[in-house]
């Protein structure tokens, strides 16, 4: 990766703007969900208030190792985003994100809570559900543009969506899992009303939890960045589609119950095989 001025500017903009954008999107998610549920809902800036409050909380942990792992999770989410927005190798970015998730899982295992352990098990199953589709997405982009570099993919002639329609749909499907929305909010629901209490993050509190929340904002911006890449040549359309995809996820969340991990795994793999593989095969014979 050549480190040009554009790379550095891209990374700096991502580092500074992503938490703000991510937080605003999270706030918009909560307000829209509330209105769909017939409630008034919190103010738009609520996620920022929450993180600030968490930052000031006393840290009560049984086991201090979890801080290291959570820091690892945060660092690698940010690195993944920097690679994507700095024009680097997309496959590397995806694997950096996978590494970040592994850190989170290890953090949950390092606590002594049975709820966190079961949340971690489910998170691993979730990863197995969505990883194939994410990798096929990157492979599809390579086959369509001839490069793994995000800059080259973004500058490709013509919208990638026209070459990768099925992969786009498959990616939207697994986005529900990555955004942790019903029906696939299995390991760590935002609403805590599930059988394993808060799941993966049951034992995290204070600054660790605040860091996880901020890391989720960075991750959401990363994922929306990948959606943007499908429409990059026409920025206006890309932005509209990206925001529409996000609010589609909110809509799906509010209209579905939570399924069990068996359903999540089976349906994701079915979608990956049908949509992802068929698109790749079509590209190969182009």
């Amino acid at each position: 990766m050549d480190v040009t001025a554009a790379t550095v500017i891209g990374i700096l903009i991502y580092l500074a703007a992503a938490p703000v954008v991510g937080g605003l999107l999270a706030g918009a998610d909560r307000v829209v969900s509330a209105r769909m549920q017939g409630r008034y809902g919190p103010p738009l800036l609520q996620p920022f208030y929450d993180v600030l409050k968490l930052w000031q909380k006393e840290n009560i942990v049984v086991n201090r190792q979890q801080k290291v792992y959570i820091l690892g999770f945060f660092v690698f989410v940010v690195i993944a985003g920097c690679i994507l927005f700095g024009g680097g190798d997309l496959l590397l970015a995806v694997f950096a994100l996978t590494l970040a998730s592994v850190f989170l899982i290890v953090a949950a295992y390092s606590t002594f809570s049975p709820y966190a352990h079961i949340g971690a098990e489910r998170e691993m199953i979730q990863m197995v559900s969505y990883e194939p589709m994410v990798i096929l997405t990157v492979v599809g982009m390579y086959m369509a543009t001839g490069s793994f570099s995000s800059v080259d993919i973004a500058r490709h002639d013509g919208m990638l969506f026209l070459h990768l329609p099925f992969i786009f749909l498959g990616f939207l499907f697994i986005l529900t899992i990555k955004f942790r929305k019903s029906p696939f909010d299995i390991s760590m629901s935002h609403h805590a009303h599930q059988e394993i209490v808060r799941g993966l993050t049951t034992e995290f509190s204070g600054r660790d939890l605040a860091l996880i929340e901020i890391a989720h904002w960075y991750e959401n911006v990363f994922l929306l960045g990948m959606v943007y890449l499908f429409f990059a040549p026409v920025p206006v359309v890309a932005v509209i589609v990206t925001l529409a995809a996000y609010f589609l996820e909110v809509f799906i969340d509010n209209n579905n119950a939570r399924l069990k991990w068996q359903h999540a795994l089976a349906s994701s793999w079915a979608v990956t095989l049908v949509l992802g593989v068929s698109n790749v095969v079509l590209l190969a014979f182009r």
Binding site: S33, G38, R39, P183, S189, H191, H193, R258
Partner: peptide, 10 residues
């Protein structure tokens, strides 16, 4: 209980 919060609220 089955994760359908909006139905609960309504």
């Amino acid at each position: 209980a089955f994760g359908f919060e909006s139905l609960f609220m309504h």
